[in-house]
Simulated scan of single mutants.
Amino acid sequence: MALEKAKLVNADTGEEVAVLFNPTEYAVEKGNQYAEIAIPGLEAPLLQFSRGTARTLTMDLFLDTSETGQDVRVHTKRITSFLDIDPETHAPPVCRFVWGGGESFTGVLERATQRFTMFLADGTPVRATVGVALKEFRTGLNREKPLQSPDRTKVRTMGEGDSLWLLAAREYGDPAQWRFIARESGIVNPRRVKAGTDLVIPPIE
């Protein structure tokens, strides 16, 4: 089986930059961001999901031209060129990292760190490692999973350790809106709601 070479592809022009040596490893990072909501009387704040973060692909690309004596910067510049701002779009190009039938990642080059480790007698670098980080790039606001509509009335069951302000924080992102739940659910004393009680979560206009 022929060796598949990894490459960076300019998504706008289709220009391909093949790496001299395939990476020995790469890492894909994904995370979420949460907002802290302070509730009086609680030892720690509530965590309210805010949004997901873009995936990041990081890896080291090894470049070596010691056998030919060619300046290795000819190849490093082709990689770092994805950081250059396009005069027409006023932004760096979107690129794709493609490695045969394995990883395919579309993003923008966020940073590139060049380390030169071998030189000719005249100082010409002939070996380098370029550490790159690609930030995932998506267009549009397509949701992978639809969320429940906030303008519809819902019913939630009080769980052990729950409170009206905890439910309000989860449903509305604001614990101070617990009064809407209490009013619609006929709750007189919000501190004496038993676990298993069905609560009405009304829409807030």
Rank of each mutant, 00 (worst) to 15 (best):
A195W: 06
T129G: 00
G52W: 08
F49M: 05
G14H: 01
N10M: 03
L8S: 00
T58C: 09
E16P: 02
G102I: 03
F82Y: 05
R96C: 03
V130P: 01
A182Q: 09
D60M: 03
D12A: 15
M1S: 14
R143H: 03
I37R: 10
A168V: 05
T197L: 09
V94Y: 04
P190H: 04
E29A: 13
L47W: 08
C95R: 07
E205G: 13
E16N: 07
P203I: 02
I204K: 11
L199W: 05
N22H: 08
L164A: 08
T124F: 06
P202F: 00
F119L: 02
A54E: 10
A27N: 13
R115T: 15
G161M: 06
V9Q: 01
S50V: 05
L120C: 10
T68V: 10
L47K: 15
K145Y: 12
V72G: 10
N10S: 03
A18D: 10
W165F: 09
Q48V: 10
Q48G: 00
G196Q: 09
G52P: 06
G41I: 00
T139C: 08
R179S: 11
D151S: 11
P40L: 08
R138V: 08
E15V: 04
D12M: 15
R179C: 03
H90K: 14
M59P: 02
P175I: 00
R152K: 15
D12Q: 15
I204Y: 12
Y26S: 06
V74G: 14
E136H: 01
A195V: 01
R170A: 11
L42E: 14
G131M: 09
V28C: 09
R111A: 15
T65M: 06
G173E: 00
G69S: 00
Q70V: 13
T197I: 05
E25H: 12
I181K: 03
Y34C: 00
K30D: 12
P87T: 07
P92F: 03
T13L: 09
D71E: 01
E110G: 14
D86C: 07
M158K: 06
V108C: 13
S104H: 11
P45W: 00
V108I: 12
D174L: 03
G159M: 09
M1L: 12
A91M: 13
L141T: 14
E160S: 13
E144M: 13
T53I: 08
R78P: 08
T139M: 12
A168T: 00
G123E: 00
A2V: 13
F62L: 12
I37H: 11
N10K: 03
A176D: 12
A182V: 08
G131S: 10
K30W: 15
T157C: 06
T24M: 13
G159T: 02
G161R: 05
E184I: 08
S66W: 14
L61H: 02
T106N: 00
K194N: 13
W178N: 06
D60T: 04
L147F: 08
